[in-house]
Deep mutational scan, measured.
Amino acid sequence: ASVAVIAAGTQGNIFATSALRSMRFLQILRMVRMDRRGGTWKLLGSVVYAHSKELITAWYIGFLVLIFASFLVYLAEKDANSDFSSYADSLWWGTITLTTIGYGDKTPHTWLGRVLAAGFALLGISFFALPAGILGSGFALKVQEQHRQKHFEKRRMPAANLIQAAWRLYSTDMSRAYLTATWYYYDSILPSFRELALLFEHVQRARNGGLRPLEVRRAPVPDGAPSRYPPVATCHRPGSTSFCPGESSRMGIKDRIRMGSSQRRTGPSKQHLAPPTMPTSPSSEQVGEATSPTKVQKSWSFNDRTRFRASLRLKPRTSAEDAPSEEVAEEKSYQCELTVDDIMPAVKTVIRSIRILKFLVAKRKFKETLRPYDVKDVIEQYSAGHLDMLGRIKSLQTRVDQIVGRGPGDRKAREKGDKGPSDAEVVDEISMMGRVVKVEKQVQSIEHKLDLLLGFYSRCLRSGTSASLGAVQVPLFDPDITSDYHSPVDHEDISVSAQTLSISRSVSTNMD
């Protein structure tokens, strides 16, 4: 405001104040949320940038038409019409005319000016109207692209899951042992070998009828009888010197917790746990005396209480009078009846079946994303299906024409109403129809010849004498029936064969 007042002088105070007050009108834009329509302006900018070359070309040609039209109309009207006294007036008329506004304040009066105005109007309006069409088509394409992008975003994750499931299904095939990355992934998420051994031990116990592997080994086996189970490696608790092959000598807290839970599941009659010990102070733990958990001091820290809870689970003690015997301790020893080589084939089979199920689920979810969402998608899918159906029908028609023997030239002739090819031409065609016709002709010829021969033979049998045999009239074959199959017997006289037959029969009768 200060700059405006200084620039306008003393009389500019009122002007500056009114100008600043008129800017209050811009507050109405906040009512229509114009300040939060950044996406709309961004869309407009992207459309203009995408079609910038077309817009520049249309505007450039339109500007050239405007300059030439205004100049030529000015030359034609400057002497006869006072409205075109300057080139600026003519340029104003050209702008209003070519933009199809047409105020009518300035019009050419001479015939030359009117002809020039009409010609440049028809030429220039087309170029001035091009930017509107370019922007409209650009907006339509952009909206369609955003629509497809939205659908693509919805299909991206199911497609990625389907590709991942397909690759993992491919890589978990037993015949592709060189693909090891997927197996490394499952090695990292699978439970430890100790848990798998416990699982298979329970399965084997159920197969043995509820007997433990130790009891199965204690059962008497006759001499020479084959053992029911192959000899396997035996594993004891981590306190002993022997372990399962492939295990580490260090046992983690999870393994100890699972070991304690498995020992508690063996039965309360074979294992008696004394009350857990509780320390009397955060600094020292008295293991010899058993106290109640309700006497825990409230001033303990979080670490002390955590250690106390761990001691409740991981440090059970047995009383002296209830101490288990050596046999019970041997039964409680952890027996590992299986090795990694025995378990891994079954584990890989389970993983393979899981990968198949996940692949089928991913495939079903991806197919669900291909379903249409709204009416536009339904129409688009219907149009695509219609085009596909037309293509299939056209391909089927082409194959039928190839089989029947109607080529493209014959199809055009039928469409024009011309006469089709004759039967002889159809026979000569190298097509399925021509071959079928040729075979039918040959079969008819053979059938006719057989009928003639059978009739001749029956007449010979009825006559009974050589004289009557020679008097029999043998009809000749019709050459038209034989089609294109020409037998060497067709052109010979059958009477010669009949005479030869009669001579042979007379000779045979004389010999008798």
Rank of each mutant, 00 (worst) to 15 (best):
E380A: 11
T182P: 06
G210C: 10
Q499P: 12
Y170S: 10
P231A: 15
F359S: 02
I189N: 12
H486Y: 04
D423Y: 06
P421L: 12
D493H: 14
L450P: 02
S292C: 09
S249C: 14
D377Y: 01
K270Q: 04
K363I: 10
V439A: 14
L452P: 13
E215G: 05
L179Q: 02
A323S: 08
V489M: 14
M251L: 11
V347G: 14
T318P: 03
E285A: 12
S283T: 07
P191L: 12
C235Y: 10
P324R: 07
E440A: 15
S463T: 14
D480H: 08
E321A: 09
I430N: 10
T180P: 08
S249R: 14
A323T: 15
S240C: 07
L370P: 02
T500R: 13
R264W: 05
A329T: 07
K332R: 13
G252C: 13
S192F: 10
P421R: 10
S504F: 07
M344K: 12
V216G: 07
D480A: 04
S242A: 11
D490H: 10
V296G: 02
D478N: 13
R355K: 09
Y178F: 05
L390P: 02
E380K: 08
P372A: 03
V472E: 09
K348T: 10
T266K: 15
K394M: 00
G385D: 11
Y382N: 15
E337Q: 11
R364W: 02
P191A: 08
D374N: 01
P230T: 09
S431T: 12
K348E: 10
I356V: 06
M259T: 04
T339K: 09
D374E: 00
D478Y: 04
R406Q: 06
Q397H: 06
F456L: 12
A233P: 12
E380V: 12
V400G: 13
V426L: 11
V216L: 14
M433L: 10
E368Q: 11
V328G: 04
K441R: 12
K295E: 15
I446N: 14
A384P: 12
M389L: 02
R435L: 06
C244S: 09
D478H: 09
T465N: 03
M344I: 09
S311T: 04
S383A: 06
E247Q: 14
V437F: 13
A467D: 08
E327K: 05
G209A: 09
S242P: 12
L211R: 10
Q402P: 02
E429Q: 11
R205P: 08
